[in-house]
Design a protein around this nucleic acid. Structure first.
Lengths: 350, 350
DNA sequence: TTGAAAGCGCTAACAC
DNA sequence: GTGTTAGCGCTTTCAA
């Protein structure tokens, strides 16, 4: 029973003017008299006219839509990013298509194909774990579609990238462990083929070196951070005569898992083992003890990525930048050791 | 430097056939010879042709896109729903536009307008808290756009709705409190103008009645569930001579808040106070104690909603249904009281 | 089975 | 300022 949609032709006819005039009136063109502008807008409201974005897109060869690919929307970092991106796109009234790669390269390729078919004006992406190969992004760029990467970026792509200083964040985290009294800090890291994890590992190692704390054998692990990996790492470490007294993990979820494993192993945090994670989930405040973390400014990173993309869309010659966002250290109870003051449970700052 | 996009005309020209033939070949029409079909597909691949969905949508008057409005993607229930919906839409190769209302009615209206402009083929929605008024959805339906609601539904709308049995879930939760030994259970509920919260409150009350447990004065509160409300409720209850010995909260996040407040008030869970929440967040497993919950099958609800919508799109005469999904009780440590066995920390079933 | 032609609703030259 | 006209890339009659 769908009422036929009202078109500009309907408005034109009922006003005895040309469709193009209606279009101009509706688009706030300068070459239109105020009188007709009013008249048209009035009639449009009266008839319940809604612009057909599809037709408009086809003739303008711009859809006003940007595509977003993220690995997984349920990680709070990414859902924050989405909010940041949405805020900006909305402000510039441009639409957003979101798709999850679920960490699959195949899916990521599919999504980009879909975006191309959709003729999105630009793409924002955070790479899947599997994406070592990036030809699909290159193809996208070859078609002239602007691209901005954030967080999980690939330096082989010539585009604006919004990242955090993983090295510095890891350095901060490790330094914090040390200043909390840890003398045997360990790092549970991600796959080193990934630059992001390499930087985190390097920052960790450098902090130890800088503070004259020895990096013990096996105390810097690189794994895929699956639950099994985490379990194995803990077993390996805790079965040593002298296990670590502090752990810096390369991902937020790993930290949560660690609290559970530690509890089951009867290891007390922070007394036996301090813990700090790269990445901050809301849940970090609710665990016992609450978890210290390096917080990644998802909202802000998303916003910046979107701003850069919009700029690149309106001016393809826009310079490509590497934007590095600052990281903040949230100190909670998981790194407050015996000797130190206890911080009452409360929401983290900001 | 954008390579011009290849069109079916390019293919047609280079093959010396008509564009319409190319279209038929590409769309697996039946009225095409296998030979030309092959030829065309071959050439298309060769030239790197990608369908222009915009043009296709305009001429078919179907976009193959459905719009999704949810209050907030960062609640795990909703991000699960998104996954469920995505799985189904993807299978039927149809695209998804996601937008968040952020619990704002104004924003929700905006989004629907945007969806109409986009000519989405259908809409799936979960209402914002503010959406008592639903004229914007009625307008959508008047334009012939199929609508399916899930979880946060409005019974004034004539459309398929996918919900859980809130009454029964609350009944289960309260019964569980009672069988865990609570004799003074309380309910921290949401705004009663909202049917969903009314049902939860009713289910709670009924369970008490059924088990001959008295519902004490002020032990069934209706609030907006803001952090302040939760704080106030706890103060009210705990200052009583005989405070509750078990709480059933109407939302998952409220439960998390409660654990913190309880800890600060030196109230032990579950010994002094058992706790169970309507809604289950991943975080529930990591709190100490872990939190018992009524789990809402987000993934499944989303999937069902999507299936129904697709059906309604392909056949507008499809019967509108009320689908009620079963709820599951996850028993964790927050309701395992002194007398009872301790459940080791581990991932919940399933 | 294929081609020719019209049209989806809008925009943008180009005239007047 | 406004109208005329010609597309945007595809689908879909209708003929052949």
């Amino acid at each position: 029973m769908s009422k036929k949609n009202i078109t500009i032709n309907d408005i034109a006819r009922s006003l005895n003017i040309a469709p193009s005039t209606v279009s101009r009136a509706l688009n706030d063109s300068r070459r239109i008299s105020e009188a007709t502008r009013q008249k048209v807008r009035q009639k449009a409201r009266e008839l319940g006219y809604e612009l057909n974005l599809i037709a408009s897109s086809l003739s303008k060869d711009r859809t006003g839509t940007i595509g977003l690919v993220i690995p997984n929307i349920s990680q709070s970092f990414f859902s924050q990013s989405v909010s940041g991106i949405e805020a900006v796109t909305r402000e510039n009234n441009c639409r957003l298509i979101i798709a999850q790669s679920n960490e699959s390269l195949e899916r990521e390729k599919d999504i980009l194909r879909m975006f191309q078919s959709y003729r999105v004006d630009g793409v924002i992406a955070s790479l899947s774990i599997e994406s070592n190969e990036i030809s699909h992004f290159k193809e996208l760029q070859d078609k002239g579609i602007p691209l901005v990467l954030f967080d999980r970026v690939h330096y082989g792509l010539d585009c604006t990238k919004v990242v955090v200083d993983n090295y510095e964040g890891a350095f901060k985290a490790a330094s914090h462990l040390i200043s909390s009294g840890c003398r045997r800090p360990a790092h549970l890291g991600g796959p080193l083929k990934n630059r992001l994890f390499r930087e985190r590992a390097d920052g960790f190692a450098e902090a130890l070196a800088r503070h004259d704390v020895p990096l013990l054998p096996n105390f810097l692990l690189s794994t895929d951070l699956t639950p099994t990996d985490v379990q194995d790492a803990m077993r390996l470490w805790m079965n040593q005569p002298k296990p670590p007294d502090g752990i810096f993990t390369a991902s937020a979820s790993t930290g949560l898992l660690l609290t559970r494993i530690a509890r089951n192993m009867q290891i007390r945090i922070p007394d036996d083992l301090a813990l700090i994670t790269f990445g901050n989930e809301p849940c970090h405040e609710y665990t016992v003890p609450s978890l210290s973390a390096i917080d990644m400014p998802g909202n802000e990173m998303g916003g910046t990525a979107a701003e850069h993309l919009l700029r690149a869309i309106s001016n393809p010659k826009t310079e490509k930048k590497l934007v590095i966002k600052p990281l903040q250290l949230y100190i909670r109870n998981s790194t407050l050791r015996k000797s130190m003051t206890h911080v009452a449970d409360r929401p983290h700052p900001g």
